[in-house]
Design a protein around this nucleic acid. Structure first.
Lengths: 229, 229
DNA sequence: GGTAAAATGACCGACGGTCGGTCTGACTCA
DNA sequence: TGAGTCAGACCGACCGTCGGTCATTTTACC
């Protein structure tokens, strides 16, 4: 076969593109290195020149996704005119908006990621995004604590706790996805919706805020994401 | 080799015993089916007669551990003389006591379970215990809500959220274990201790309780578990 | 033209899982 | 009671797959 040489960064990002497509289509375990290199048009040795292991490929992909996510809300984070609460709400609103914009693609990925055999994939992506978001959210919370608005003495811990709350809805997600298309779908979406409303309540309470101060999700948001085509 | 025939339940539980010992000593991925069957003194075919896959073995082990854990606190759950808050505190105290009693064994298992390559093991065990504890905790919370003590309208959701809080300390655990024996150990244990204090605060707030009503951990508890020999 | 990095693909060994078949103890029924 | 029957517990050689290695070749660049 003809040998094609590319800049390492290009190669790496191409491999990540292929891995992303395949992982979100078939899952992590079911995707083999051979699948990835076939799609990327590179040899086995070539692949292992850029990544030390399949595991490292996943790690790198998770990190890339996380950094993309934070880049999308960068301007809100840097806006100096915002109070902590306003920044937090803008941050959340912007994240929701981004999710809604490519909800169809997201939905397709979720179909795979939330399947029980794919927890590793889910966990890595989630962990990476938490790692990236942690200093960001901790900063906002520290700001709010300094303003005397958030009743929290440990911004780091509060941020970590809040970021992990999303994971506690994993099962509700998984259930909703599993029964998608059946008669139980409506009830499952309802449950998911309720689950997230409760998470919103929890966020407010953890921060020592009157309920509704932080808008975690708007009513109907989860339904909109779930029913996206 | 001589063929030894046993009652299926005995065989199953023996295999689970062996799997438990090996998983908590080497991790899930690093333990092979051959390891398990060698330790259990059974053939491959014999093993697969009882379990459909390695994955199913893990699932069964996680379920067994979860049921053992809930059995340990059964009497507290059934005591009719307790208010919801008292029941919750007894439940937590009993769980802590049980953990402290075999802290050394637990510590050894944690050394493996909290290593990054063993998230699957961690996740399955955690998920199984959450599944078993969920109705229990939801019951207590519903009781407290009915008493007008807990300000929560969705006991199920509250229970699920609270049970998942523990997982949000996974990273702090992992860090503490990773640096165990180094100069950073003290700081990591301190961080873990702080992390759990915050979780306690979060539980109280989520339930709409004055801080300190629910005693999630006592000060020094995490240190005691971590430094157990 | 020399060299470091990029790329190749045949090859390896471990591992999860299968499969054809054997063994055993419990339960008939004459 | 003892021969016959049968389910299902058990055996272990075998297999396909898959992550990963390595000796070697090609390329880009100075």
């Amino acid at each position: 076969m003809p040998r094609i040489v590319k800049h390492p960064e290009d190669r790496r990002s191409e491999l990540l593109d292929c891995a992303q497509a395949l992982f979100f289509e078939q899952g992590y375990e079911r995707t083999t290195i051979n699948d990835v290199i076939a799609k990327a048009g590179i040899s086995k040795g070539g692949f292992y020149h850029h990544f030390a292991s399949k595991e490292e490929l996943l790690e790198a992909l998770a990190a890339r996704l996380a950094h993309e996510a934070v880049a999308r809300v960068r301007d809100v984070l840097d806006d100096p005119g915002l109070s902590a609460l306003a920044r937090l709400n803008s941050f959340l609103a912007r994240s929701r908006q981004a999710n809604l914009e490519d909800a169809p693609k997201l939905r397709a990925a979720f179909d795979v990621v939330f399947r029980p055999e794919n927890i590793v994939l889910y966990h890595r992506v989630n962990a990476a995004s938490i790692a990236v978001m942690l200093p960001v959210l901790a900063g906002i919370i520290a700001e709010g604590a300094a303003e005397g608005v958030f009743a929290v003495s440990e911004p780091e811990d509060a941020a970590e706790t809040i970021l992990h709350l999303g994971a506690s809805a994993h099962d509700a997600w998984a259930r909703a996805i599993a029964v998608s298309g059946t008669a139980e779908e409506e009830a499952a979406i309802e449950a998911l919706e309720r689950r997230f409303q409760f998470l919103g309540l929890s966020v407010n309470r953890i921060l020592g805020l009157p309920d509704g101060s932080v808008v975690f999700v708007e009513p109907g948001f989860m339904r909109a994401v779930m029913t996206a085509r």
